[in-house]
């Protein structure tokens, strides 16, 4: 948003990886995710996880943080992973009897579940390393540099800025309802609960909207005219490129070996 490059905001960080130019980090990690999301052989997926682990070590990323990220996505996936073994057709390997219901887990289903879990882990961890390595403003500026429509980047910046303000407002509203002994009761058809919650959403909408107007006026007061000059990004150094190519190449190699491995197996048959 500001034309001048502030050295303290740009890529300040403790480890070698933190200092890699942000655009390179984005491209490398996204490529990594694209490549690993397409793998289906367990050994290669595990090797990819190994690369992630190595990067996490170099970046001195706390294990707690990594584990936390994984835990966040688990609920959605667990559901699929539990259901899959019993729904994918194939050779039965295990039987679960739930009263009159007998469920057969298939080998194909189990394998499928395992592969999905590994891909998921790769994706989540790679993305969380990227956010760990790149402060939000720097990440946004990198996206600008990568030709993401500026309007979208600006929108994201505003959203993250006001997310905290509005989430606070929502929390305060919830607290003040709780203070008068409101708690969600019953289910969807509990009209008191649902109408109270809906009112809260309505009030939050109004408050956000009037807040938005005041923000806009405050920007006008400082001469805002609708155009936000792009800030120059940092120069890409050779060492940055090396890191980017290194990470990409590692993932690419795994992917090639997986494809190649499959062909070898077919040739042998």
């Amino acid at each position: 948003m500001c034309m001048t490059a502030d050295p303290m905001v740009q890529g300040g960080g403790e480890t070698v990886l933190h200092r890699v130019e942000a655009r390179i980090k984005v491209v490398a990690m996204v490529t990594f995710v694209i490549l690993t999301a397409g793998m289906s052989a367990t050994p290669y997926l595990l090797a990819a996880l190994g690369i992630i682990g190595l990067l996490a070590v170099i970046a001195r990323m706390p294990v707690r943080l990594l584990a936390g990220r994984l835990a966040l996505v688990v609920p959605f996936s667990v559901l699929m992973l539990v259901v899959l073994p019993f729904t994918v057709p194939g050779e039965g390997v295990a039987l679960a009897e739930l009263g009159p219901l007998a469920l057969v887990a298939t080998r194909e289903g189990l394998l499928q579940a395992q592969v999905l879990a590994l891909r998921l882990a790769n994706g989540v961890l790679a993305a969380s390393i990227l956010t760990f390595l790149t402060p939000f403003p720097v990440l946004m500026n990198a996206l600008r540099g990568l030709r993401v429509p500026p309007i979208l980047v600006t929108l994201m910046e505003f959203t993250v800025r006001y997310l905290f303000v509005l989430a606070d407002e929502a929390r305060r509203m919830q607290l003040s309802r709780q203070a008068r002994d409101f708690r969600p009761r019953g289910f969807l058809w509990h009209s008191w609960t649902m109408s109270t919650l809906a009112q809260m959403v309505g009030v939050l909408f109004i408050r956000s909207y009037t807040r938005a107007d005041r923000v806009y006026q405050a920007m006008l007061a400082r001469g805002f005219s609708g155009h936000q000059p792009v800030r120059a990004g940092a120069r890409v150094k050779a060492s940055d490129l090396c890191w980017g190519i290194g990470i990409t190449a590692a993932a690419l190699t795994l992917r090639m070996m997986e494809v190649g491995g499959g062909m070898w197996l077919q040739l042998l048959k």
Partner: peptide, 24 residues
């Protein structure tokens, strides 16, 4: 373009509204 700030705050509204849970 000047409406972008207003839209940004409203996107944050969606985030905040998504934090309000209802029992199903």
């Amino acid at each position: 373009d000047r409406q972008v700030p207003v839209m940004g705050v409203m996107a944050a509204f969606i985030f905040a509204a998504q934090m309000i849970n209802f029992p199903v």
